[in-house]
Simulated assay, not measured.
Amino acid sequence: MSAPDSPGEGGNTEYGRKSFKRSKSHFADRITADGRDGWPVEAGRYRLVASRACPWASRALVSRRLLGLEEAISLAVVDPLQDDRSWRFTLDPDGRDPVLGIRFLSEAYDAREKDYPGGVSVPAVVDVPSGRLVTNDYQRITLDFATEWTALHRPGAPDLYPQELRDEIDEVMEGVYRDVNNGVYRAGFAMSQEEYEGAYRDVFRRLDWLSERLADRRYLVGRSLTEADIRLFTTLVRFDAVYHGHFKCNRSKLAEDPVLWGYVRDLYQTPGFGDTVDFDHIKRHYYMVHTGINPRRIVPVGPDLTGWLTPHAREALGGRPFGDGTPPGPPPVAERVPESGRPPGVAAA
């Protein structure tokens, strides 16, 4: 993203006088099993750079965990707060990423294309040997994790993008992206009352549709977790903490919809989902970086996070989270979410 108070997430964002627009990712090379774009799947070669605050990057965090790719592609977590050079590695000793040796993600962008005019966004995959950005295509990265990295998946990894369900998954994801994933941003960064109200209506029209769809099924498509659930989860888990107030999507809280609240708690309590969520990073990023919306940078104390641990009863709908597979093991020690980012009483893993 290129606007001063934008989150630098999921591609660039253009702020016109009357509208908000999320543009396509500029660097759309793919890492594939056959290496047809010049980037073959190879264990240890690439580094995923992500922000735990960013819903678009969080898709990659969840997918990587579910598929067991932690040893195949290493992880760099950036500071949730940015300066004028965007995402920075100030959480690491000496403010440098220990693998890439850089202070700012922009350095990997510059190594790929000097004076690139767009913003610096996450998720980003960097080629470790050259230090060059490979891709920031947030829509494609997780699909390729599921379909191109299969030789490096853990035993028992789920099929997150099954061939026989792809048309339905794609259709569901398209509506979720337009009206929910991106819809909350269209509402939050609206430049006119009319634009805001249109986005607001889209968000809740789609949430109502999702609530109806999920009333009698545990997952969005089929009887197991898919890419569609990952993409919806990363917006829903932020809804009450951020989008309800900060982005003015305030018709109702997620916790006031029994179906969606049960669904998102079910996912949060599933290994690979909640153990990637850092509520501290989420709140500090949105409320402190978006100074155009929140100029005093005051971070709300609430909402109460203990509800995330309560029973959801979604098991009664049937289905198996991992299909014929198994849950992922605990996250690597170095990747565990700090206590400050977890609901009270939640162990690191």
Rank of each mutant, 00 (worst) to 15 (best):
G16T: 14
P4W: 12
D37P: 04
G11A: 08
E14R: 12
P7G: 04
A50N: 05
R36K: 15
N12T: 06
A33S: 15
Y46T: 04
T13A: 14
E42G: 05
T13F: 06
G16Q: 08
P7M: 13
D29C: 12
E14C: 02
S6V: 00
C54G: 06
A53G: 14
S2R: 13
Y46E: 06
K24L: 13
D29Q: 14
A33T: 09
I31N: 05
S19L: 07
D37E: 13
R45V: 04
R22S: 09
K21W: 05
G35D: 11
S58N: 14
K21I: 00
S19K: 13
W39P: 01
A50K: 01
G11H: 08
S19E: 12
R17F: 00
S6Q: 13
S58Q: 13
E42Q: 15
T32R: 15
R17Q: 07
G10N: 05
G44A: 04
A33V: 09
D37Q: 07
R47C: 08
L48W: 00
R36C: 06
H26A: 15
E14F: 10
G10M: 03
H26D: 10
G38M: 12
A57G: 14
D5T: 13
T13G: 09
E42Y: 03
D37Y: 12
F27E: 03
R47N: 08
R45M: 02
S19D: 14
H26Y: 15
F27Y: 12
A28K: 15
A53E: 03
D29A: 15
G35Q: 10
V49L: 04
S25I: 00
R17L: 09
S2M: 09
E14I: 01
S25K: 01
L48M: 13
T13W: 04
G44R: 02
L48S: 07
D34P: 05
Y46H: 02
E9F: 06
A43F: 00
T32Y: 07
G44I: 05
I31R: 06
T13Y: 07
G38V: 10
R36L: 05
S6P: 01
A43E: 13
Y15F: 15
Y15K: 06
S19W: 08
W56L: 03
A28V: 10
K18C: 06
R47Q: 15
A43I: 00
I31F: 09
C54K: 03
D34V: 08
L48T: 05
D34A: 15
S58D: 02
E9W: 02
A57L: 06
V41I: 04
K24E: 12
N12Y: 01
A28P: 02
S23T: 15
W39M: 08
G38T: 11
K18F: 08
W56V: 01
A33M: 06
R47A: 11
A3N: 11
P7W: 01
R36V: 12
G10V: 02
P4V: 03
W39T: 04
G8D: 08
S2N: 14
G8I: 02
R17I: 00
S6F: 00
T13N: 06
W39G: 06
R36M: 05
P7D: 12
R52V: 01
A43H: 02
A50M: 05
